[in-house]
């Protein structure tokens, strides 16, 4: 995405080792003001780790993350359960840790279509309601970047489209950038500016159309994922083994397997 202004967040050459495993390898990622960037990739590909690095929750082993001065994050973590022994209404939750006025909270909840939940206990919310409350929490922080980790998890299919539309609407109304992890390829492809396909390293990235045609993307998600959009072949130069390591391709386009002699 060609943009004149420097990015809000610039991740350059970030590698992360966790427990002896290299979870991220030489990852570059830019997030510009107002754009929606979606991370896709198989389970265990390091998507959440990358979010944590961007949020400053985890220091990269190598590389660095530059944020424009004064960037505020809103964060919606993966669906989580709150201990049932903790009495916590939606209003109280949105008023933590900083006190917020009832009007501010009501307005934020109305904007995400969850005004009626204000006096409910958090534990009693459905998946969709919970995510909306989390979005309202993000809005209250007036973020420059809203970071969402699998926002559609635990939301029924009908609700998923509505929630995705809502995220897009909020982005337009408030002008914040969105960085999210998602599994739902069809939804991602239809409502994202920039897709980053991650499998420990950045496999491919670009506009959704281009990524969906990328052979690596199709290799990771299966041919059907690509069939949802037009299939388009173009040159690609590497494949992956089971650990996500980059390996050269065979003539037929399948990744080469390491032979015993090549192993260290």
């Amino acid at each position: 995405m060609p943009t004149e202004t420097p990015p809000l967040i610039e991740v350059s050459d970030v590698s992360v080792r966790l427990g002896g495993q290299e979870v991220l390898k030489h990852v570059d990622l830019n997030i510009h003001a107002g754009e929606i960037v979606t991370l896709i990739g198989p389970n265990g590909a390091g998507k959440t780790t990358l979010l944590r690095v961007v949020l400053g929750l985890l220091n990269p082993t190598r590389g660095r993350v530059m944020c424009r001065r004064g960037v505020t994050f809103g964060y919606v973590p993966q669906r989580f359960a709150i201990d049932p022994t903790l009495p916590m209404t939606v209003r109280r939750f949105l008023s933590l840790p900083k006190r917020r006025s009832r009007t501010d909270i009501e307005n934020a909840l109305e904007e995400v279509g969850a005004g009626y939940t204000i006096d409910r206990e958090l534990q009693a919310l459905s998946g969709g309601e919970f995510q909306r409350v989390m979005l309202a929490r993000g809005l209250l922080r007036r973020p420059d970047v809203l970071v969402l980790d699998e926002p559609l998890q635990g939301v029924d299919v009908g609700g998923q489209i509505a929630l995705f539309d809502l995220i897009g609407r909020l982005r337009r109304a408030h002008g914040f950038a969105v960085l999210m992890v998602s599994h739902d390829l069809h939804l991602v492809m239809s409502s994202t500016d920039h897709v980053v396909c991650l499998n420990h390293h950045v496999c491919c990235h670009g506009e959704p159309e281009a990524v969906s045609r990328h052979p690596e993307y199709r290799e990771l998600f299966g041919r059907d994922a690509g069939r949802a959009l037009a299939i388009y072949h173009h040159a690609h130069d590497h494949g992956h083994d089971a650990h996500g390591n980059v390996v050269p391709l065979n003539r037929d386009g399948t990744p080469q397997r390491k032979t015993g002699s090549e192993r260290e």
């Binding site: 944590r52 949020l55 400053g56 929750l57 994050f73 964060y75 973590p77 989580f80 709150i82 201990d83 903790l86 916590m88 939750f93 933590l96 840790p97 958090l122 922080r141 970071v147």
Partner: peptide, 13 residues
């Protein structure tokens, strides 16, 4: 209280 709800969310905020 915030840490009791979600430590990572608390840290991110």
């Amino acid at each position: 209280l915030m840490i009791s709800v979600h430590p990572e969310l608390a840290a991110a905020e």
